[in-house]
Amino acid sequence: MKITCEKTALAVNPAVIENKADDLCSVDWVKTLFDEARRASCGKCTFCREGTQQIYKIIEDITNGEGESEDIALLTELAQMIRGNSSCEIARDATGHLLTVLEKYEDEWDMHIKRKRCPAVVCKAYISVHILPDKCQGCTACITACPEKAIVGGDGLIHVIDQEKCTRCGECFAPCKYDGIVKAGAVKPKTPETPVPVGTFESGGNRRRRRG
């Protein structure tokens, strides 16, 4: 009697992660993979059902700034255990990719857990979104698009994102015709605190002049 799970592996292109682009975060990539895996699980086997759920939860924590120093060891242990004992290819493949990524991009995972940074500027907890004052034309397209009403400004004024309200959802990127909206990690661009007329904001200069 051989019990196997009827599920087959997820369609994953390992090349994407073998030579990953600078703006691809390996943590986020694996998180997405495990989100798919847990949704594809048939539920019969503990290692697949609870294992993919558990791993997803741990990685989600890591991307949310709630990773703990023991998490890498825990993920490695779980992944090895599940890879060796799960009934189905879904969990075996997903954990295989996880193990590869953990080894190959150890530094990136460390940055997430210990320094709370996402070098690829992907994980939302570690990034902020800004409107570049020299690009913004005050067209209000982003203001309309923002579901959180986190962008202030008006016709002809440089728009400013309220960082308290912004959820980094990214809805504002596409409507901007001037490539004026960017994600930032640790280094943030200089922007006005409140909307000012287009063309009046100069990084650095503005403020000094006012003081004088």
Binding site: I3, K44, C45, T46, F47, N85
Partner: peptide, 10 residues
């Protein structure tokens, strides 16, 4: 019928 799911009987 066995399911082999809990993995405790390994």
């Amino acid at each position: 019928t066995p399911q082999g799911g809990c993995k405790l009987c390994v």
